[in-house]
Amino acid sequence: MIRIAEEKDIQPILEITKACAKSMISSGIYQWNEHYPNTSAFQKDIKREELYVLEINHAIKACIVISAFMDSEYEPIKWLTPNINNIYIHRLAVHPQLQGKGYAQQLMHFAEQFAIDNNYSSIRLDTFSQNKRNQKFYELRGYKRLGDIYFPKQSEFPFYCYELVL
Rank of each mutant, 00 (worst) to 15 (best):
Q105G: 01
I10S: 04
I66F: 01
E15V: 01
R3I: 00
E112C: 06
N86K: 05
L14V: 07
P76T: 04
N119Q: 15
F151K: 01
F110Y: 14
L51D: 00
S67A: 07
K18M: 07
E156G: 10
N118G: 03
Q11T: 11
H58S: 13
G102T: 13
P82I: 11
I4Y: 08
Q97C: 08
K136D: 05
Y52M: 04
I77V: 15
A93K: 10
W79Y: 07
A5R: 03
Q154L: 15
K144H: 11
S72D: 10
Y74V: 04
L98N: 09
N38E: 02
M108H: 04
K78M: 04
Q135E: 09
H35C: 12
S23D: 08
C161K: 02
N119K: 14
S122E: 06
F157G: 01
N131W: 11
I89N: 02
T39H: 12
Y162G: 11
V165E: 09
S121W: 08
Y138K: 01
I60T: 10
E156A: 12
A19W: 01
L92Y: 00
R145M: 15
E75L: 14
N119M: 13
H95P: 02
R145W: 09
I2H: 01
D148K: 13
Q154Y: 13
A62C: 05
Y30L: 15
E73I: 12
K136N: 06
S40F: 12
P152T: 06
S155I: 14
Q11I: 15
H58N: 15
M108D: 03
